[in-house]
């Protein structure tokens, strides 16, 4: 079975490694957390402030974020809001102290994955992180497929796109020919091109691809 040629031409998300990004002002906590996480096989990278992390942030970062809620300078909550504004896909786990619970709750409502109260159980922490990484992985793949499908659709000519829409709508070739006022033969040529450009072999695959791209397309 041969993979469609075109797949290789399409640039994908960089296959970056998943990292645990730790942002905490307390050096002992950063250091000890890296020590703990590395003992469980996770790779971690620490920042001493929100500002430092934001300076290093880029859209292709993979992994999750462990963020202290109380920090001098920019707080964890504020940094989270910035990340949301920048459409960051990194899941965030907040570390809270005593009395920060209401804050953590509001952060959760805004899309943080979870929060954990200090002092925390190491297993709980690791479990939360693994969970977050898995979520991120799923999100990443979904996103990649979406982007892929969209890209393929973007390569279609306007006529091909019309034909695609009618195929997905369940019209037969003859009906499509009538709808568009072209010959069946021409419809068949378009159909073959669409299948090729979309990198699919069956109608079912084609529909699936179009559906994936749909949320973004519409």
């Amino acid at each position: 079975m041969t993979m469609p040629l075109s797949t290789k031409d399409i640039p994908l998300h960089t296959e970056a490694e998943q990292l645990v990004y730790i942002v905490d002002d307390d050096e002992a906590l950063r250091d000890s957390l890296i020590w703990l996480l590395e003992s469980t096989g996770l790779k971690a990278h620490a920042f001493s402030s929100a500002e430092a992390f934001l300076a290093a942030w880029h859209a292709n970062m993979r992994g999750c974020l462990v963020l202290d809620i109380r920090m001098p300078g920019m707080s964890g909550l504020e940094m989270h809001e910035r990340l949301i504004a920048m459409h960051s896909a990194l899941p965030v786990i907040f570390i809270t102290g005593h009395g920060d619970v209401p804050m953590a709750v509001s952060a959760l409502k805004k899309g943080a994955v979870d929060f954990i109260e200090k002092p925390f159980n190491d297993q709980d922490m690791v479990a939360l992180i693994r969970n977050a990484l898995a979520t991120e992985q799923k999100q990443f793949e979904l996103h990649r497929q979406e982007a892929d499908a969209q890209r393929r659709i973007d390569q279609l000519t306007p006529r091909e796109r019309e034909v695609l829409e009618l195929i997905v709508a369940g019209r037969l070739n003859k009906q499509i020919a009538d709808d568009l006022g072209i010959s069946i033969k021409t419809v068949e040529v378009h159909r073959a091109r669409v299948m090729e450009k979309m990198g699919v072999n069956s109608l079912a695959e084609l529909v699936q691809h179009v559906m994936i791209s749909a949320p973004k397309g519409e």
């Binding site: 002992a28 250091d31 020590w35 469980t40 200090k118 190491d122 297993q123």
Partner: peptide, 20 residues
């Protein structure tokens, strides 16, 4: 409470990291 949490969390991390 917050301040006390810092060393306690760190101690716990160091210990559990070592245990692992």
């Amino acid at each position: 409470a917050h301040e006390l949490n810092q060393p306690l969390s760190a101690i716990s991390n160091y210990c559990m990291g070592s245990v692992n």
